[in-house]
Design a protein around this nucleic acid. Structure first.
Lengths: 244, 244
DNA sequence: CGGGCGTTTGAACGTGCTCAAGAGGAGTGG
DNA sequence: CCACTCCTCTTGAGCACGTTCAAACGCCCG
């Protein structure tokens, strides 16, 4: 696994208490300082991951879960024809590898969409903290529930237009949670990634993006999206994210 | 909520220790009798649910999770056009309402596909057992991970043939886990349910079923499926369930 | 400066949808 | 117990959306 640098977390001044993504992450909603600090103590290391480098590959063993501190990642597998099938995108505050817990095996690969930093949470050290602090236990289980909801919600659309609109609404909703404004939505993944995620030809994704831009519903330049007409985008999709 | 009968669990002689679905359910893998018994003690009641009756409706508050003891359920929501969008099927040993934990709100409805029995697990009473017994905590989190994997795996196919094949492979794999033989796979849901689940026209589902039957890959009669040619079904799908 | 990736656009084909209609089966009420 | 209704399953025909194939361009990165 080249280009992956492990650093002691202390030396980087990364700390849950002043992490901007804390509300979304595992210490989100916790009020007692001791609870937060005990989770923070579990996270000894962080990983710096250069663009396109892998956090882990499919069919490897898993010991840690990871929290995105900065940047973004994609999760995928390679099918029998060599196609890259994307299963998820991860942004700051998201936990990676929750799926790998049952048999401690990664069934999917994860790589960075851009230069990223990730916090390392050794699973075996996290369990005792959950046992000691009910609020940490509740928080962790709530996060797994939120992931189930999020994973479900992005692929319900039937037509290509619905799927792309729902995808954008999902990204927008997650970015607004992360204190981005609607003029400032990062889209770090390529259109090809989006097509592989949605199970749609990349030409179709491109044409739908063009339509959305021509109709002045969104604007995209330099991997950043500006939302111009939320009402119309919600009308095109099937989901209600209640973004108002 | 008509036709829903709550009984004291004791009076029904339903007990985790001799439940046939225990290996798949929350006490699966546990070896210490005290652990199993303390989980069992949390489950005071079971629910008898007649076919088509609801366990709960969307937009209601949630206090319990449910374990299917017998029968089967479907989970769905109604979109703005009144279409029933199926999100999951639940079989004996499966836990229902894990998604509802974050905000204690059901976003989806669940109803019975056939007469069913469900065990009621009050969430607030389950937390202390997880805190006390590391193995119960690990088991619960493993189940959430398994659900994430299962939810993901059924909708990756792009073509209608792939989606139907993957759906059948998923059902078969879950039924073999439940000690069914490949000559004896229950399909309690209607073709309409399957089409609503897969996001495919029900006519298309029917035609693909007809092809699978004509090619002697499967046989279906009276809501029971017989698997005749696993190799061919796996070739048609995209997933590898390694069912051999 | 060259190569490769990502994006854009066009044209033709084909899968799967829509609409329509009928048969079979289960459940309900008289 | 039968008749009626509704739901599910089945099959056909035409159409449309999205794919596939092809080609060209811009741009990032080495």
């Amino acid at each position: 696994m080249p280009n992956k640098i492990l650093k002691s977390r202390q030396s980087q001044a990364i700390n849950c208490l002043d992490c901007p993504s804390r509300p979304l992450c595992i210490t989100g909603g916790l009020v007692h300082k001791t609870e937060i600090e005990e989770v923070n103590d579990v996270i000894m290391n962080s990983i710096t991951l250069k663009k396109q480098k892998h956090l882990f590959h499919a069919h490897t063993s898993m010991k840690n879960i990871y929290a995105v501190y900065s940047g973004s990642c994609k999760e995928y597998w390679i099918d029998e024809n060599g196609n890259e099938c994307l299963t998820n995108f991860y942004f700051p505050g998201d936990l990676i590898a929750l799926e790998s817990i049952p048999d401690r095996t990664n069934l999917l690969s994860v790589s960075a969409l851009e230069d990223s930093e990730l916090c390392v949470l050794p699973l075996n050290e996290l369990y005792p903290v959950m046992q000691k602090h009910l609020n940490v236990l509740k928080r962790f289980i709530a996060i797994t529930g939120n992931k189930m909801r999020n994973d479900r919600s992005t692929k319900m659309g039937v037509t290509a237009n619905e799927r792309v609109s729902d995808f954008l609404l999902n990204i927008i909703s997650r970015m607004l949670e992360r204190n981005q404004t609607e003029k400032n939505i990062p889209l770090p993944m390529s259109q090809l990634d989006i097509s592989n995620y949605l199970g749609i030809a990349h030409e179709t994704v491109n044409r739908i993006f063009k339509n959305l831009k021509d109709q002045e519903i969104i604007k995209i330049e330099n991997k950043m999206m500006t939302l111009l007409d939320l009402d119309e985008l919600e009308r095109l999709g099937r989901l209600d994210y209640s973004l108002k």
